[in-house]
């Protein structure tokens, strides 16, 4: 690693850790939420941007993580155990569903993941006895990693920040490992990877499971953060929001989706305090993004982004960036 790169990473971590100094109490809460959602969106960005799997049901894994914590915390109060349970459950579901879904690609994969997410939503919605149905469930267990319960917003911010940084660096390591490189090769040219003797199905399944686990982890933290869960966490609207966050932030980058998450969560918070019509505004954003995104703000942002990236990263890594800047080509293969 180059000296400047190290310095940049130190600055990045330090900035995350020092951010509370300038934030109000509300700002802390909002930033914690951003960080948690960012982990979730990063996990979706991983499969879209690096494996070419465009899912419209990724909220399923986030919701599974959240529901696992909410349901098991009635019997077990060890936070570590609950987090592990959430990650493992989400991972198993991702593995099993991936086993069936990954054969299909493109629009079929999108429709199947959408149906899968809505199935879980329907189950959570209708099994009132277990999940609380439409009313959801309160999570009363406090977050305790063994050093006393974490109650203050500041302390929870640090939990979220540490988790976010851990996820980010884990993904970086993953992507530069032979396994991660294999996955990226599949996105670039699947038939060539097959011809080279790679079991592309297995690679995709691995990255899909990893992504599901990370989404489950984010969901588990969210259950603690929000102290309340509802079927909305599984709904396709949430999956779609995550998808748009990935695209706004930049497909094929790691931090891009996280930035997209920050942009959207803050925007939603801001707009929701003025109007209840957030879905219309979000829908309009979708439409405008699609129609004008190529030459407009997003294109500009992605230009700036790729400029920053090329300064920061080595040339080899740059090739992963979407060629046309908007990343929609992931579905064309």
């Amino acid at each position: 690693m180059k000296k400047e790169t190290v310095a940049l990473h130190v600055a990045f971590v330090a900035a995350t850790m020092l951010l509370p100094l300038i934030l109000t109490s509300y700002g802390l809460k909002l930033t914690s939420e951003v960080l948690i959602i960012a982990m979730f969106v990063m996990s979706l960005g991983l499969i879209i941007g690096f494996a070419g799997l465009v899912s419209l049901g990724h909220a399923a894994f986030f919701g599974i993580g959240a529901y696992t914590v909410a349901l098991i915390s009635e019997h077990v109060d060890n936070t570590w155990l609950l987090l592990i349970a959430a990650v493992v459950t989400a991972g198993i579901v991702a593995f099993l569903s991936g086993l069936m879904f990954i054969r299909s690609s493109g629009a079929y994969f999108l429709m199947i993941t959408l149906a899968f997410g809505q199935m879980l939503y329907a189950i959570a919605y209708k099994m009132e006895g277990v999940t609380g149905g439409a009313d959801g469930k309160a999570v009363s267990e406090s977050f305790n990693l063994g050093f006393g319960a974490i109650e203050s917003r500041l302390a929870f911010y640090y939990v979220a920040a540490a988790a976010f940084l851990a996820c980010y660096y884990l993904l970086r390591v993953f992507l530069s490992s032979p396994l991660g490189k294999g996955v990226r090769g599949i996105k670039e040219n699947e038939s060539r990877m097959t011809a080279l003797g790679y079991n592309t199905h297995l690679y995709k399944l691995t990255v899909y499971s990893l992504s599901g686990m990370m989404a489950g982890f984010a969901g588990a933290l969210y259950a603690y953060f929000n102290q309340y869960i509802s079927p909305d966490l599984l709904h396709w609207m949430f999956s779609g929001q995550a998808l748009i966050m990935v695209i706004v932030g930049g497909v094929g980058t790691l931090l891009g989706p996280a930035i997209g998450a920050g942009f959207f969560v803050i925007l939603q918070n801001y707009i929701s305090s003025y109007t209840e019509r957030w879905p219309i505004i979000m829908g309009l954003l979708f439409v405008c993004l699609v129609l004008y995104g190529r030459g407009g703000v997003i294109h500009l942002a992605s230009l700036v982004w790729s400029h920053l990236q090329s300064k920061r990263r080595t040339g080899r890594e740059k090739s992963v960036l979407p060629k046309e800047g908007s990343g929609f080509e992931s579905l064309k293969g």
Binding site: G240, M282, G283, L284, F286, L289, V290
Partner: peptide
């Protein structure tokens, strides 16, 4: 000809219609 963009467009429209 741009599949993902179409999906996103119709997805956005479905929110707008439902909320309207």
């Amino acid at each position: 000809g741009r599949e993902l963009e179409q999906v996103l467009l119709t997805f956005g429209l479905s929110f707008i219609f439902a909320d309207l």
